[in-house]
Write a protein that binds this DNA or RNA. Structure first.
Lengths: 375, 375
DNA sequence: TTGTAGGCGTTATCAG
DNA sequence: CTGATAACGCCTACAA
């Protein structure tokens, strides 16, 4: 019967009594080993061991005023990423665990869950970097999710000493209220006048390099953008693409294609329309790798060959981009480094922000040239 | 200046005053919305918003006797997995974040960190399943690591309502002390007489199916095992391999090769010795995909062709196994499902364990036939 | 529906 | 090194 305490958890008092010392010594034995004689320390730890004593993190957090935990929060929205087929997790199979016997393969949904287009994605690699750095720092990580309702956000804020966030558009103002009490880092958020730290990639530069490659190596000038312009990242990338084309004296196509990450529903008719109208571009530049995955599927279904008939590129450089046919030319973000940077900022091991302002750490991306552009 | 509270965090008292209500109403506004009139509830939440109030998770945990958090713990040992080149994270570059300007690509170690042989591994996929289920349950996850010293373990135990663990061999006894206070799940641990729950895969069955394939489809009977026999998983797999060969009337080679996950140092001379002695087997069956990765490198360096000269197989079915040359024939564990099962056990949404004992959930694995066996 | 008071388990302080 | 005691912030009977 999980979740039920069979026994009362032992406290400092129990241990103190068992070891015939004061509760202060018990506390010291765990937190200030140096302030205790070797002998009593051993005696205390021994008693603790006997009793199965575990110091209450909650009580410690209360007394100290901080928990020592760093948080990483994803809004519910992002959870869709978990499932390429738009199937909510709750709809997945949940094999009975109390039935006994071996659980059959078909009950695990493993084919869906192991799809490299669904994991690891941008978010996952950033998260990994965050975890790695926290491990190196010896600090626990708290992963949470929730709506961007105030209550949900506040609940998360109340548990950690610092919080890194994959922001949704309307997130920043809500968060701003909490910044006086704990530091907050936003991933991939455009600069703005708020009190948060930022860790991001130079989207403009990545796109500039990518366009340069397409134009110079492949003489591709007729380029269409594919992406959802709700995300600020996508907007930055599209704008940079247009700017770079114009800088080269090329008049850009201004119709961008709205792609959803999940499903091909919206993409199919748009691609068909281009085909039918003889308006296919020479290249599709996608806002993210995921957009490119979807697009590749659609193109394949329509009998359009990549890269012969049309070039396709992605953005992010996720693992899945190596596994498409052909492999995807894309712009890689140093995602692990971004996650690590956020952890260091929150932990206070990153120095002081410049000019007495907040951190705005910008990483250089890298074009990964692969088959889908014809290289 | 991260980690320092510019302002004192507001408390229930501040909010109560701001909203002209009692602290109980403040608490109710967050935890028991129904026990309050719509009007006062709004008034309280409004005041909270104005003040940037976030309920202290520590205080709540203390008062309630539980934190609501589920934990996932990895012992330091496992952290090596993060780095294929045995480079501790601390040895990696840590670009200065307070210098201003864009951080150059070479300072990110991205090539190391994005190596698919290092991520995602078995542990990462199980972790992902755990996270997915916790998200679906609306529960935060705490990720921690540490030595298997009692103090470290106890500290983790004291922060969560339930704990899932990738155990090291000597872990179980230490943990057993804490089981009366919180439920504990061990991943991939052989059954034993301790109070922990277990989530694992049927190693014997996976190995049986794999050997069946090698023998029946490829007439490979001279098979050598590669792995570190410290891990109980590896032992189970080797024993199952031997048993299956014997069941087929084949006399198994009893010399297994000791492979380390990191580095090829120990593997090279052993493979060389086999080559020199003309004792190369028809197939190498590795205990894990990682062992197979290393072995493939060594074989390539020695000019041995796979699968023509020798067959190589892995175990786990990590993403990296798709990316080797040739792609690796391996046995996949339903890792996400395993992580999800652990979360459900800890959260109490898995029913009751059979026969009033602990859960021992066993999943069926699946042979993934790919190029490295000659298929 | 609202207010009051006691308690949760640590840490920190301070005089012995 | 000990012992006593006051926070820490919230939850929850219980009383009003």
């Amino acid at each position: 019967m999980p979740e039920e305490q069979t026994t009362r958890r032992p406290t400092v008092y129990d241990v103190a009594q068992e070891a015939s010392v004061s509760i202060a010594s018990v506390s010291f034995a765990f937190r200030r080993p140096d302030k205790l004689s070797e002998a009593t320390r051993e005696r205390v730890l021994d008693a603790a061991r006997r009793l199965g004593y575990a110091p209450s993190g909650a009580a410690r957090g209360l007394a100290r005023g901080r928990t020592g935990i760093l948080g990483l929060h994803a809004f519910d929205l992002l959870l869709e990423r978990a499932d390429p087929r738009a199937q909510p997790l709750s709809g997945m199979q949940s094999p009975a665990l109390d039935a006994g016997g071996v659980i059959a393969w078909d009950q695990t949904d493993d084919d869906v869950l192991s799809d490299p287009r669904a994991f690891p994605l941008y978010v996952d690699e950033v998260q990994r970097g965050f975890e790695l750095e926290c491990w190196a720092l010896g600090r626990p990580v708290m992963l949470s999710s929730g709506s961007d309702a105030d209550v949900s956000v506040a609940d998360t804020v109340g548990r950690v000493d610092g919080l890194a966030i994959f922001p949704s558009p309307q997130t920043a103002p809500t968060l701003a209220r909490h910044t006086p009490s704990i530091p907050i880092v936003l991933f991939s958020a455009a600069p703005a006048d708020d009190p948060h730290h930022r860790v991001r990639v130079d989207n403009a530069r990545g796109m500039r390099d990518l366009v340069a490659h397409l134009v110079e190596e492949h003489a591709a000038t007729d380029i269409a953008f594919v992406g959802r312009l709700e995300a600020t990242d996508a907007v930055e990338r599209r704008d940079a693409m247009i700017a770079e084309l114009e800088a080269r004296g090329i008049r850009p196509r201004l119709d961008s294609i709205d792609a959803t990450v999940r499903g091909e529903d919206e993409l199919v008719p748009q691609v068909r329309a281009l085909l039918a109208g003889g308006r296919m571009p020479r290249a599709f530049v996608c806002a993210t790798d995921q957009n490119a995955f979807t697009l590749l599927d659609v193109l394949a279904a329509e009998g359009v060959r990549v890269p012969d008939d049309v070039i396709v590129t992605g953005f992010d450089g996720t693992l899945g981009s190596r596994l498409t046919t052909p492999p995807l030319t894309t712009v890689r973000q140093p995602m692990e480094a971004m996650g690590r940077a956020a952890a260091r900022i929150l932990a206070g091991t990153a120095g002081s922000p410049p000019r007495g302002k907040t951190f705005d750490v910008v990483f250089e991306p890298r074009v990964l040239v692969r088959g889908s552009c014809g290289c």
